Amino acid sequence: MMKRWRSFYLLLIILTGLFIASITVAVMLGPVPIRPETVWRIALSHLPLFGDSFVVDWSRGQENIVWEVRFPRVMLAAVVGAGLSVVGVAIQALVRNSLADPYILGVSSGASVGATSVILFGTFSFLGQWALSASAFLGALVAVVVVVLLAQVGGRLSPVRLLLAGIAVSAVFSALTSLIVFMAKNEAGIRNALFWLMGSFAGAKWEQLLIPALVVAIAMILLLVRSSSLNALLMGEETANTLGVNVRSFRLFLLVLSSLVTGVVVAVCGAIGFVGLMMPHIVRLLVGSDHRRVLPISALLGALFLIWADVLARMVVAPEELPIGIITSLSGAPFFLWLLRRNSYRFGGDGR
Rank of each mutant, 00 (worst) to 15 (best):
M278T: 03
T123C: 14
W338M: 15
V87A: 09
L306E: 04
F19K: 10
F201V: 05
H281D: 07
V55T: 13
A151G: 02
M183L: 15
P33K: 10
A21H: 09
R73N: 11
R70G: 05
S258V: 09
M279E: 13
R342D: 01
L277C: 06
G83Q: 02
S249D: 13
V107R: 03
P334M: 06
W308I: 08
L49E: 13
A21C: 11
L312K: 03
I218V: 03
L105H: 14
Y103F: 07
S135R: 15
A175I: 04
L257G: 05
L255K: 06
A100S: 02
P36H: 02
L132M: 15
A232N: 09
L76Q: 00
S125Q: 14
N64W: 12
L233H: 02
V172A: 07
A100T: 09
E238S: 12
Y345H: 14
G114D: 12
V216H: 01
R4P: 08
M183V: 04
G61T: 14
V148F: 15
I34P: 08
V27P: 05
L10P: 09
I297Y: 07
D101E: 11
K205L: 03
T123H: 14
L306C: 08
I297F: 00
I327Y: 03
I119L: 15
L18M: 11
F250T: 08
V266Q: 12
V113P: 05
P102Q: 04
L300S: 05
E68Y: 11
A77M: 04
V55R: 06
G276H: 02
R96C: 09
P296K: 12
L105M: 07
V107A: 14
P334V: 06
P319G: 06
G128C: 05
G110S: 07
L233C: 08
M1F: 07
V245W: 00
L254W: 03
S344A: 08
S229T: 01
I167F: 08
Q152R: 15
I23E: 06
L150H: 12
V317Y: 01
I14E: 02
P36T: 11
N343Y: 09
R314L: 07
F274S: 00
G236Y: 06
G332H: 08
L306M: 01
V55E: 15
P31L: 15
G332S: 02
L179N: 13
I91H: 12
F137T: 10
S174Q: 06
I324W: 10
V160C: 11
A43R: 02
L339S: 10
I91T: 07
S258N: 11
W308K: 10
S228C: 00
R73E: 06
G349F: 05
D52W: 02
F71C: 04
S135Y: 10
A136K: 04
L18C: 13
P102D: 08
I272L: 01
L209W: 08
E321D: 03
F336N: 09
Q62C: 08
S259D: 11
I282D: 01
G273N: 01
